[in-house]
C-alpha cells in the first residue's frame, strides 16, 4: 500500500505536470472552439517552442548581463519564444488549414497530421535526432512545506502556468477582443454579422494557443533538463485528454482538466504502478468519451442553440 512518502512527491510532480498539460490544452480547446477542429499539429508547437526557448536561452546566456539578471533573462526568453511560437501557430492555420476550410471536415485534420509529421522531421533533420540538454538557469532548491517537498523549478512552473491562465481569463472575459473570441466560438456566422473579422480572430486564437503551447515546451525542457524532436506526442495526447475531460471548447474546463489529469496520473502512479502512468490518460479519455462526452464543464450543445 502506498504511503505519504510516495504520494506526496508524486502529487507535487502531478500538479506540476498538470500545470503544463493545462497550458497546452488551452491551445486545443480554443482552436476547437472557433473551428470545431482538433489541431493535431499543436503537439509539435510545444516541441518547437521548447527548441525556440533553447536557442534563446543559449544565446542570451552568452552575455554576462543576462547571466546576472535571471528575471530579465526569463522574461526575454519567454516573451520572444512566445512570439515565435505564436507566429508559427498562426502561420500553420493560414497556410495549411484555411485553404481547406470550405472542404469537408476531414481535410484540415489530415493536413494537421501532415504538418505535425513535417515539423517533427524538420526538427529531427536540421537539429538532431538525439535529445538535447536544456540549460538549467536556476538551481533546484528543495523546499519543505510540512510533509511535502517541492523544488524551485516545480514552484516556478506552477506559478508561470497560473500566471498565464489568469492573464488569458482576463483577456477573454474583460476585453473587447476577448469577447469577440467567445462570440466567434459560439457562433461564427453571427459573429461576422457583428462586424467581427472572424479570420483575424481565428489567427489570434492560433497565435495565443501556440504561444501558450510554446511556453509549456520551455517548461518541459526546464523540468526534465532535455528535449527531443518527438517530445510533443505524449504531451499533446495528454493535453488533448485534459481538454476533453474539461469539456472541449471550454477554457476554464481545459485548465481544470489539465490539473485533474496531472493529479489523477500521479495518484495512479502512487497507488497502482508508475509503469502504467501513461495509460491512465488514455483510460480517462475513453471513460470521459463514453460517460460524459461534453466533459466536466462542457456545455457546447446548449451554447450553440
Amino acid at each position: 500500500m502506498a504511503n505519504s512518502a510516495i504520494i506526496f512527491p508524486e502529487l507535487v510532480n502531478g500538479i506540476t505536470l498538470g500545470a503544463i498539460y493545462a497550458l497546452i490544452s488551452l491551445g486545443y480547446t480554443m482552436v476547437y472552439g472557433v473551428l470545431l477542429m482538433i489541431n493535431f499539429a499543436h503537439s509539435e508547437i510545444v516541441m518547437a517552442g521548447a527548441f525556440f526557448g533553447l536557442f534563446l536561452l543559449s544565446f542570451f546566456l552568452k552575455f554576462t548581463f543576462f547571466q546576472n539578471n535571471l528575471l530579465l533573462l526569463l522574461t526575454s526568453v519567454f516573451l520572444l519564444s512566445m512570439c515565435v511560437s505564436g507566429i508559427l501557430g498562426a502561420a500553420i492555420e493560414r497556410l495549411a488549414y484555411r485553404p481547406l476550410r470550405k472542404t469537408n471536415r476531414l481535410m484540415p485534420l489530415i493536413s494537421a497530421i501532415g504538418v505535425s509529421l513535417f515539423l517533427q522531421n524538420l526538427f529531427m533533420l536540421t537539429l538532431s535526432p538525439e535529445a538535447k540538454p536544456y540549460p538549467s538557469v536556476f538551481p533546484a532548491v528543495n523546499f519543505q512545506l510540512g510533509a511535502v517537498t517541492i523544488n524551485s523549478i516545480q514552484i516556478f512552473i506552477i506559478i508561470i502556468s497560473i500566471l498565464f491562465m489568469v492573464a488569458l481569463e482576463y483577456f477573454v472575459n474583460r476585453t473587447k477582443l476577448g469577447v469577440a473570441i467567445k462570440a466567434t466560438s459560439s457562433d461564427i456566422e453571427t459573429a461576422k454579422l457583428m462586424g467581427i473579422n472572424t479570420n483575424s480572430i481565428i489567427s489570434l486564437v492560433f497565435f495565443i494557443g501556440a504561444a501558450l503551447g510554446g511556453v509549456a515546451g520551455i517548461l518541459v525542457g526546464m523540468y526534465y533538463g532535455s528535449i527531443k524532436y518527438n517530445m510533443g506526442f505524449t504531451y499533446g495526447i495528454k493535453a488533448f485528454t485534459a481538454a476533453v475531460l474539461g469539456g472541449i471548447g471550454n477554457i476554464p474546463g481545459a485548465m481544470l482538466g489539465g490539473f485533474m489529469l496531472g493529479i489523477l496520473e500521479s495518484l495512479g502512479a502512487a497507488y497502482i504502478s508508475s509503469a502504467y502512468k501513461d495509460v491512465f490518460a488514455f483510460i480517462i479519455l475513453i471513460l470521459v468519451l463514453i460517460f460524459k462526452p461534453t466533459g466536466l464543464l462542457g456545455e457546447r450543445a446548449q451554447d450553440k442553440c
Binding site: 473587447k176 457562433d187 453571427t190 457583428m194
Partner: peptide, 18 residues
C-alpha cells in the same frame, strides 16, 4: 442568434464591435 453564454451587455457591445 443571441450569444446565450454572454451577458446582455456583452451582446449589445458586440453589436458595436465595428
Amino acid at each position: 442568434k443571441i450569444f446565450h453564454a454572454l451577458s446582455v451587455d456583452e451582446n449589445l457591445r458586440l453589436g458595436a464591435f465595428s
